[in-house]
């Protein structure tokens, strides 16, 4: 028999919306209990979900904190670290907050967000605040929803928050879903090589001109250069030269790929754990934060890292 957990004893749970009344039946009663008990709640959900919840909650909705979905979820890595920072601050003040998040991602961005969801299980329990993620199975492919269940240790149902039988630990989840990168297009806008550290400046200048030609705002351009610089530096330090850097535009993204000739496998979990102190490895962490999507692949004697930056930024 499966034990029912109350909201504040859950760690990282998912609520899969499968009908118009799921929110009313499952989430509204939980939020009412939190509001009645004066328990802090932060909701970062889409406009439709907020409207349904506010309707169901009535005046109680005003006793809950509502965050801006487009702000919290503007980039994948920044969403992850943003929630982490928020809950760390709450924990430092001795507060436990039940966070309800509804990422507005779809398609490639949603599948690229799954590893972050997996790592919430490992990183977030230390803060003592539960995180419940809301996904609507009517708007996402069934396979993605099944994977979403694998990365949440609990699931909300009408019977409460239950341990999730299909849960897979983050390391295993990442190992199981290693995929080769899609081919680089035959025509790219930048194609250059970096043979030693003294050429990093030239590489940044080349990419900076390319990104500026695409009218990226200064802050986003800086993110492109930080991410690429860290990945190329890693390639020079841990792989084999030369490091080939190619860049192109793909639909609403600017994409940069760095290939070194080391052919070593980058551990699938690299860059998902925040550095605790500056001497910890942090190049790939910083690159994952700066890029929206970062994927790695090792094949044909090459170690490849592909980074994708939204263009225009913050478009999902």
């Amino acid at each position: 028999m499966t034990a029912q957990l109350d909201g504040l004893r859950c760690h990282h749970s998912v609520l899969v919306i499968d009908a118009d009344d799921t929110l009313d039946k499952v989430l509204v009663p939980v939020l009412r209990r939190h509001a009645a008990g004066g328990e802090p709640v932060l909701l970062v959900v889409g406009a439709h979900t907020e409207r349904v919840l506010r309707q169901g909650l009535g005046d109680a909705a005003d006793r809950l904190e509502w965050g801006a979905q487009e702000q919290f979820y503007r980039q994948l890595g920044l969403a992850y670290s943003g929630f982490m920072r928020h809950l760390r601050e709450q924990s430092a003040h001795g507060r436990r907050v039940h966070v309800f998040g509804e990422p507005g991602y779809a398609g490639e961005r949603l599948t690229a967000y799954l590893p972050y969801e997996a790592f919430y299980n490992e990183i977030f329990p230390a803060f003592g605040s539960p995180l419940t993620c809301v996904y609507d199975q009517r708007t996402h492919p069934a396979g993605v929803i099944e994977e979403m269940r694998q990365v949440h240790s609990e699931e909300w149902t009408e019977r409460g928050c239950l341990p999730n039988a299909t849960y897979v630990p983050p390391g295993q989840f990442l190992n199981d879903r290693l995929r080769p990168l899609a081919p680089v297009p035959p025509h790219v806008e930048v194609d250059t090589v970096v043979c030693d550290l003294s050429e990093l400046t030239t590489c940044r200048t080349t990419l900076g001109r390319w990104a500026a030609a695409h009218h990226l705002p200064q802050a986003t351009l800086a993110q492109v250069l930080v991410a690429v610089n860290e990945v190329v530096t890693n390639g020079l330090g841990h792989g084999r030269t030369p490091v080939r850097v190619r860049a192109w535009r793909h639909e609403t993204n600017l994409v940069v790929q760095a290939d070194d000739h080391g052919g070593r496998r980058i551990p699938p979990d690299a860059g998902y754990r925040p550095p605790k102190q500056p001497r910890d490895p942090m190049g790939l962490w910083a690159a994952r934060q700066a890029a929206d999507i970062l994927a790695t692949d090792t094949s044909g004697g090459l170690t490849s890292v592909r980074m994708s930056f939204p263009h225009p930024p913050s478009v999902s």
Binding site: S81, A219, A222, Q223, V226, P274, P275, P278, M282, W285, A286, Q289, A290
Partner: peptide
């Protein structure tokens, strides 16, 4: 500088 702030923030420090 603003550049340094961006890197410090991305690294989490």
């Amino acid at each position: 500088s603003p550049w340094m702030t961006i890197t410090l923030e991305l690294c989490g420090f």
